[in-house]
Amino acid sequence: MSDGRLNHRYRALDVPVPGGTLRAGVWEPTDAAPGAPTVLLVHGVTASHLAWPFVVDRLPGVRVIAPDLRGRGRSNGIEGAAGMAAHADDLATLLDAVGVDRAVVVGHSMGGFVSVVFAHRHPERVSRLLLVDGGLPLDVPSGLSADELVAGILGPTAARLSMRFADVGEYLEFWRRHPAFAAAWTAELEEYLAYDLVDDGAGAFRPATSYATTADDTVDMNTGTALPEALAGLRHPTRVLTAPRGLQDDPPGLYAPEYLAGVLEAFPEVTHERIDGVNHYTIVMSPDGAAVVATAVREELAAAATTA
């Protein structure tokens, strides 16, 4: 497993949270100086902490903590509802478990929304926010049912959660045909995908994330109160990176330029950069995208250090 092996020592950590146990990955830098900085990385709606080794490899000297959000990866046995507030409180518990008071927080996709709510509910734990193709309101019609909302935002990504696979090889072949990774297939990606597959109890395998969890979280982040309240009270320096192509490598991505311009006008304190040449996945799960994100992380860590 890659797991940041060039510059870090990786370990898995299980943390008790309401309803069960939260799995997290911790990457300790092999050449850490005293007081090495810490960054908390929060993955997307159907992902896991193993979406991040691409970025971790490019953060020498930085301690990295990344959870499997409840209902995903090896945190998929947690009972009870999810939602942005529950995820945010889990992040605070995770930081307590690893003895970290405050961190730069990076959220990709749904992880961006979770990060914004985390900063609102636990402001003392966050120094700066870096949102990667997520975290700001999406352009979705009002009045949709939960299934319509999930289908409209996630499309085939949501449909995959109900599929069954004979083994890891079949799952990898499914993803090899996915347009998002046509030009970005790597060993790290295979490790991430293999980790995502779990026994369905009936002789086959399924993605670790359940459709019900995805639907609940998608509805909450688009129609619930936690996100708008958090954005209205945004007090941390916040930077957003967006991708010009979406989940199917299709333009204009999650945030069409004209729509995003209006959102940014409503939040003038948020800075924005559009990253060319990547889609919603490859902005973190490819060497080129991870290099851009890692550079932004280092810049945010440097800015946090000057204001500490």
Rank of each mutant, 00 (worst) to 15 (best):
S142R: 13
Y259A: 11
D167E: 03
D217A: 04
G169C: 03
Y192L: 15
S127M: 00
D96T: 05
R9C: 10
G4M: 14
E269S: 13
P237K: 07
D3S: 06
N76L: 06
T271N: 10
T213P: 01
G152W: 07
R11M: 11
A66H: 08
A212C: 10
E28Q: 15
P237Y: 05
P207E: 03
N7C: 14
A184T: 11
A208V: 12
R102M: 05
Y255Q: 12
L59S: 03
R70F: 02
R9M: 13
I275K: 03
G224Y: 10
G73E: 03
H236Q: 15
V64A: 12
V56N: 01
G71D: 01
T209G: 11
Y255W: 14
G233V: 08
D3Q: 11
A119F: 03
A24F: 13
F113D: 10
A302L: 13
V106G: 10
L129I: 11
G277P: 04
A291Q: 07
P29G: 12
S145V: 07
M110N: 10
P257Y: 06
G44E: 08
L129C: 05
A159H: 08
E265C: 06
E148L: 00
G61A: 06
G201Q: 10
F174E: 12
G135Q: 06
I65E: 05
S286K: 12
D216H: 07
R274H: 02
D199V: 05
G107H: 07
A296C: 08
V126R: 06
Y195T: 04
G201A: 09
E124C: 02
A47M: 10
T225V: 15
A230V: 07
A180T: 12
N279W: 05
A92Q: 04
A182F: 05
A305G: 11
A208S: 15
G143A: 05
D249H: 15
W185T: 07
R245P: 01
R23L: 09
R206N: 09
V150W: 10
H49E: 11
A266T: 08
D220M: 09
L197W: 04
R23G: 12
A230R: 06
A66G: 02
I275D: 05
L197C: 08
D133F: 08
S48D: 04
A305S: 15
E148Q: 14
A208P: 14
P16F: 13
E300G: 08
A103Y: 09
P268E: 12
V56D: 09
A146K: 01
A261V: 04
D250P: 01
D167F: 01
A151K: 10
A166Q: 04
